[in-house]
């Protein structure tokens, strides 16, 4: 199955990855090949097969509601691109 330029551009916006025209052309070919590979799936008979999300049929363990974390802001913000007054700074958020 092939993937259109429009689909690639749309999905690149969803994934927040900037792509230029040249890259879209390369992706058209590469993603097309990958989707061809993936299309083998359609041949499988999966009637009445339960989807498998996890290798083990385990169930979730729940954690007791107890505070185990302490303030480590300084350590975390030491590796941040931009902070001020304890806040992470990003280009203006417009709602």
């Amino acid at each position: 199955m092939s993937i259109s330029r429009e689909d690639i551009e749309k999905v690149a916006v969803l994934a927040r990855i900037k792509v230029d025209d040249e890259q879209v052309s390369a992706l058209e070919k590469d993603l097309g090949n990958i989707l061809d590979l993936v299309d083998q799936l359609s041949a499988a008979d999966t009637e009445a097969v339960e989807p498998m999300a996890h290798p083990l049929d385990a169930v979730q363990r729940l954690r007791a509601d107890e505070v185990t974390e302490t303030n480590q802001r300084e350590a975390f913000q030491a590796i941040a691109p931009a902070t001020e007054d304890g806040l992470y700074l990003v280009p203006k958020v417009i709602e």
Binding site: D65, E66, T68, E69, R73
Partner: peptide, 21 residues
Amino acid sequence: KTKIFSGSSTAFGAEPNTQAN
């Protein structure tokens, strides 16, 4: 007392990002 997926406190009014682990 704590967040849904971590042991950080949910108390209101703390200094910014001091309860973000």
